[in-house]
Amino acid sequence: MTTLAAFAISATTFLGMEFVAWFMHRFVLHGPLWFLHRSHHVRHPHRFERNDFFFLFYGSLSALLIIYGAPDKDWRFWVGVGIAAYGTLYFFVHDVLIHGRMRFWRKSRNTYLRALNMAHKMHHKAITRDGSEEFGLLWVSPKYFELALRRPAPTRTLRTRAASTPQEKEGGR
């Protein structure tokens, strides 16, 4: 397989995963699997939620495709790479940026990421399986771009560490 074909398969899979994610989220997670996904729409004190089990499905599918396609680097390998790339981006954008499940990337001044965040927050306004909108991850309705452009971007402020020892309080080391 040529490098161009491998890239095309992975890129097509990556882009196709947005449709798969939208469809699954809209009709399966907010449908028959709501009993698992509900944990993602309600506040809770737990670090993990039942909704996190969906990672196992897509992660396993990606891993199996990569493993079985690896000897020949055939289409299965590159489809698995595309799914893995989408899953990686999903983790950083959805879990880290939007939901703040890890504290190293909290806000963005980027208009697209701010619009994405606003759309996702709108999705979470509904705490039942019905009434939600914006089911995708990467595609954002134009109305949220307009809103992100109208609303000022967050300012960056550096927090200074409070002096913890008497010497630091007096200006020493």
Results as ranks from 00 to 15, higher is better:
1 M>Y: 08
2 T>S: 15
2 T>D: 08
4 L>M: 07
6 A>E: 04
6 A>M: 05
9 I>A: 06
9 I>T: 14
10 S>G: 14
10 S>C: 11
14 F>T: 04
15 L>P: 01
16 G>C: 11
17 M>Y: 03
18 E>L: 04
18 E>I: 03
18 E>W: 03
19 F>L: 14
21 A>D: 05
21 A>S: 14
23 F>C: 09
23 F>E: 07
24 M>V: 15
25 H>T: 12
25 H>Y: 04
27 F>C: 13
29 L>I: 04
30 H>L: 03
35 F>P: 04
36 L>E: 01
38 R>F: 03
38 R>L: 10
38 R>I: 02
39 S>G: 06
40 H>T: 01
41 H>Y: 06
42 V>G: 03
43 R>Q: 12
44 H>E: 12
47 R>S: 05
48 F>V: 06
48 F>C: 02
49 E>Y: 04
49 E>C: 12
52 D>P: 00
54 F>I: 13
55 F>T: 10
55 F>A: 09
56 L>S: 06
57 F>K: 02
58 Y>D: 02
60 S>M: 15
60 S>R: 11
61 L>T: 13
63 A>S: 14
63 A>Q: 08
64 L>M: 12
64 L>Q: 07
64 L>A: 15
65 L>N: 03
65 L>H: 02
66 I>Q: 05
67 I>A: 15
68 Y>P: 00
69 G>S: 11
69 G>Q: 04
70 A>S: 13
70 A>C: 07
72 D>M: 07
73 K>D: 02
73 K>L: 15
75 W>Y: 11
76 R>W: 10
76 R>F: 10
76 R>L: 15
77 F>A: 00
80 G>F: 01
80 G>D: 04
80 G>K: 03
86 Y>L: 02
87 G>Q: 11
87 G>C: 06
88 T>G: 09
90 Y>A: 03
92 F>E: 12
94 H>N: 14
95 D>F: 10
95 D>G: 02
95 D>A: 13
98 I>V: 14
100 G>R: 14
102 M>G: 01
102 M>Y: 08
103 R>C: 09
106 R>F: 11
111 T>R: 11
112 Y>W: 15
113 L>E: 03
114 R>I: 03
116 L>I: 07
117 N>S: 15
122 M>Y: 01
123 H>F: 08
127 I>S: 09
127 I>Y: 07
127 I>L: 10
128 T>V: 09
128 T>Y: 07
129 R>G: 02
131 G>V: 02
131 G>K: 13
133 E>F: 01
133 E>L: 08
136 G>V: 00
138 L>W: 06
140 V>R: 00
143 K>Q: 09
145 F>I: 12
145 F>W: 15
147 L>K: 11
147 L>T: 02
147 L>R: 09
149 L>H: 11
152 P>R: 15
152 P>N: 10
153 A>Q: 06
153 A>D: 02
154 P>K: 03
155 T>S: 13
156 R>Y: 15
157 T>S: 13
157 T>E: 11
159 R>D: 08
160 T>H: 09
160 T>A: 15
161 R>M: 10
163 A>G: 14
164 S>H: 13
165 T>K: 10
166 P>F: 12
166 P>G: 05
168 E>W: 10
168 E>N: 08
170 E>P: 00
170 E>L: 14
173 R>V: 08
